[in-house]
Amino acid sequence: MWQLNYNIHDLLSIKIQGNGMRDPTRNLRYSYFATADDPAEPDIILNIGPFEPSHEGAEAIAHKYYVKENYFYCSEKGSGSNWKIEIFGFETGKTVINFTGGGHGLRGVVFPTFMAQEFLIPFIEYKLAKKNHFLIHSGAVCKDSWGYVLAGRGGVYKTSLIMDLMRTNDYQFLGDDRIILKKGGGILAFPRGQFVFDFTLNNTRTEERNAFDNFKLLVHALTNKTEAISTNPVANCSAIKKLIFVSRKTNHTIQTDPVIPQEALQRLITNNMAEYVESTKHSPIGQYNLYVQVYSLIFPDNDLQKHFDRMREGLKGIVMNTPMQEIILPFEYDQMAFNTLAKDIILER
């Protein structure tokens, strides 16, 4: 039995515990928030390992989802992975998640708890939103307490931009995948998977790792028994200087576009929601939106489905009061692209 405790900016406490897992310390997604304190009643407990579900008395939907008030259970076979998930406190109160399963093959062996840890994200997002803090799918850097937010869907070089800003302009790191926006303005850091981020920052030019880089990363993961503490400065900041939407096109030139506030709000919401929807079944986090829908069949007025309205309301002020811009990167990311962006667009005062 092992257990790890996390404290997210004194807003949420999380305990992850498990049994039977060989080495839980590899690729911990939330190590930035690790704490020695053992809270009596964590907001979220994630139990990783085999369990017996208590779904008696639940409504069965499509023969595989089981729903009771504040409770959800399912057992699914995805492409390349299987999982069983039981959630107590799905909608209100303290949440306990029992999770077993994970990816097949090499990834399943090297990062056995990856899928379970990823599945925490929507729960953290939902609980933070109730406290007027909004976990958004964006990266951010900061200088002199001013934050630059880079929002965008996956694969648009957010991480590469952030790595370059840190390397060449001495910007501090807030997160390359998720950050927390405060309702009244300001950003809290949410670094995740620093093991992989630090490796990439120190070893490769952009975020795109080739097969050899991945091999080195694998060796690094297997030989480092404990995760290296990040050497990169991480900071929180009190105000947002600029909100930049990053996109990527098949073209060869950099483009910029103005952003309409109403559209920006809609895009921030869709950007978060799309992370919880997959076209076909690959991972539990990609099924989260479906699980909420299934729960809503039985409990139509539940609080879970009010989440995105709450977020829209909370982010309205930020979107209205922050300078915004869209930058569209070309198919290939290169230093030229970065120089143009950094000087003329991201950092202009």
Partner: peptide, 20 residues
């Protein structure tokens, strides 16, 4: 919505690019 996969995802990604 539940019967519309994989298009539920495809439309969502399209909506991100064209929110209006």
């Amino acid at each position: 919505k539940m019967e519309s996969y994989p298009f539920f995802k495809y439309l969502l990604e399209y909506s991100y690019v064209f929110p209006n």
